[in-house]
Amino acid sequence: DVAEPLTPVLPDGPREESLQFVSELKDPSCSVDVSAVWWAAAGGRELRVVTASESAVSLWEPRAPCCWARVHTWRLPEIPVIQIVPLPDTCNLVCVALGELEIGEIRLLLYSSETDSFKHSLVKTGNIKAVVGLKDWRLVSSSRTMQEQQVEMVSLSETGGSKDWQTLMPPEETVTAFAEVEGMREALVGTTAGNSIVVWNLKTGQLLRNMHVGYSYPAFICHRAYSDSGLLFVVLSHPHAKESESCGSPAFRVVAFNPRTGRSAGVMFSCVPPGPAGRYLEGDVWDTAGAAVLTSGAVAVWDLLRGRCTAVLPPGPAGHWALARWAAGGAVLLAGRRDGTVQLYRY
């Protein structure tokens, strides 16, 4: 458990921020996702790691110094786990999406103090295309039948049930991702398969805006949104983007939208460092920090407002990185390998 020295490969001079190795855990199963959750502990709450394999989800608690112990495993043998859905500001709760090819159901995994036992409960079934957890124990998902698309928000109860449902007006195109607008409890944005940004009023269910952003950067998905000075800023990524001569291989982009006019302008562009790093595969955003797994097996971190790569975790002899997730308000990066290894880094 000695801090591992890093050799970041940076495109433009010395790093200003860096990643500092903190600890490692190893799940014996192949990882499909990793996340961090707050969990009640003596005298307060503590950050715990959640690892997901195809048939089980495990909760890990910190044991000093720098060690992790698995405290519970929820067995989910019927349908493969696809992803963990982060629920901000919750405690003692894990949300997972299960399915084959696409999400077929969403479940809550939790500890019940009433029965002093761990349990899981079904929240939603369907052909679910996108799901996001919002503040205040809310979950939004889009699902599609042959005839129509359904977008719904559910309010979750602390016992794992669903308290209240709100239907949101669906856009014509399939919704690919959602992001809550930070600081605006009733505003939600989504990206669509038709290269649009859509905006909803969560209280009324109204679809307020459908803003097309052109086909220059196809198949983007939204990670984060906030409103400032009358503009809506959205952080996008391009999971299937190819390298172009003018701007290299794109990872994240910050775009400003004027919701009144539907016009947009690029604010900042974050590229994969030149060299053998490869292309963007998948990533996570917290505040102004973006982290992504690249096709080379490295994890790269960017300051999104400056468009600058600040650190790179190269693939080690033990294998390629496959997962990169932020935890604890962006202060901790979880990097995961398919073999079940998860390393925590302080950023």
Binding site: M169, M184, E186, A187, V199, N201, T204, Q206, L207, L208, R209, S227, S229, G230, L231, L232, A256, F257, N258, P259, R260, T261, R263, S264, A265, V267
Partner: peptide, 23 residues
């Protein structure tokens, strides 16, 4: 980006669009 690129900006865009959009 400037206001001329993006058109007239309103600080109350969310409330205004909610009032204008179909219920």
């Amino acid at each position: 980006c400037s206001e001329s690129d993006l058109g007239p900006i309103s600080l109350n865009w969310f409330e205004e669009l909610s009032a204008e959009a179909p219920p």
